[in-house]
Simulated assay, not measured.
Amino acid sequence: MDWSLCYPAFVVPDTQLVTEDHALKPLTKPVTIADIGCGFGGLLVALSPLLPDELILGLEIRTQVTEYVEDRISALRSQHEISSPGLYQNIACLRANTMKFLPNFFTRGQLSHIFLCFPDPHFKARKHKARIVSSTLCAEYAYVLKPGGCVYTITDVEDLGEWMRRRFEAFGNSGVRGEDDGVETREGQGKGVFEKIELPEEGKEGEWVVEGGEKGQMGMLVRCIREETEEGKKVSRNGGKKFVSVYRRRKDPAWPDEI
């Protein structure tokens, strides 16, 4: 993957890696944040100035929507080229089916944040296998997330929010079967790979931001997914509810000979 096409401002000068196909220009830092199903890029644009030291990638399956976001980012970069030359250089969008190819983009433990904002609920039972959260996909999220990294989910469909909660909390929990395709996931007493974080109510995220640190950053990111995404704004206009959850990846347990 030639990331220099997405983040030209972060290319290491006068260097290249020669592969069998062509030469790749390495970046000064890896991508650490992924917005899966980024839609029209509202969250990407909001996060860019808030996290200027992070490379943020939006992944979208729809071709025309991806082209729109690419043009939007290009326009923003041009508009701020003189006044703020580094602004919006740290975001990019690619067309991809992440349900099939997520591990092709990221190495193990590369990401610190994954966003799943207003995914398609696929209401019919026969379409549940197409949901962006499943037992299988939880394994891929756990693979690309570093220990301590978080998955942020938001939806206006309460049943979907509950579906995602059960899958994340059950994944890696010994004795619990994470069944999909309409079969209920049984609750367990052990600890899985993900732990659910208790969040502030909508409108009170600023209390966390004031505290700073990891908690402050989490409060800032939760506010963004509630207020800055196009779907989030639409739900607010219609007076709907938003169901937000954050799941932190636990550290891998030590091997017996490491204890």
Rank of each mutant, 00 (worst) to 15 (best):
T66P: 02
F171Y: 15
Y141L: 13
G41Y: 10
W163T: 07
I154R: 08
D159T: 14
L27E: 10
V45G: 03
P147R: 00
F168Q: 04
T153S: 12
S112L: 00
I114F: 02
R62Y: 09
Y141P: 03
M99N: 07
T98A: 15
Q89L: 02
L50M: 09
L145T: 06
M1T: 03
L27H: 07
V235A: 04
E140N: 10
F123P: 00
V11H: 08
K215N: 01
L24D: 00
H80R: 01
E201I: 02
E20Q: 11
N173D: 12
E214K: 13
I91N: 07
G182T: 11
F123D: 00
R62G: 00
G86S: 14
E140W: 05
K25W: 12
T19G: 00
C224T: 08
E60L: 04
T98N: 01
D156W: 05
V45F: 12
D14I: 00
R248A: 11
D21W: 06
E184I: 10
H22R: 11
F171V: 01
I197T: 08
G149I: 11
T136W: 12
G182S: 08
R226A: 03
V65H: 05
S84P: 04
E187W: 09
C38V: 09
S134N: 01
K215V: 05
D159R: 08
G178L: 03
T32M: 07
G161W: 06
S174F: 09
L5F: 10
P8C: 08
L47P: 04
S78C: 02
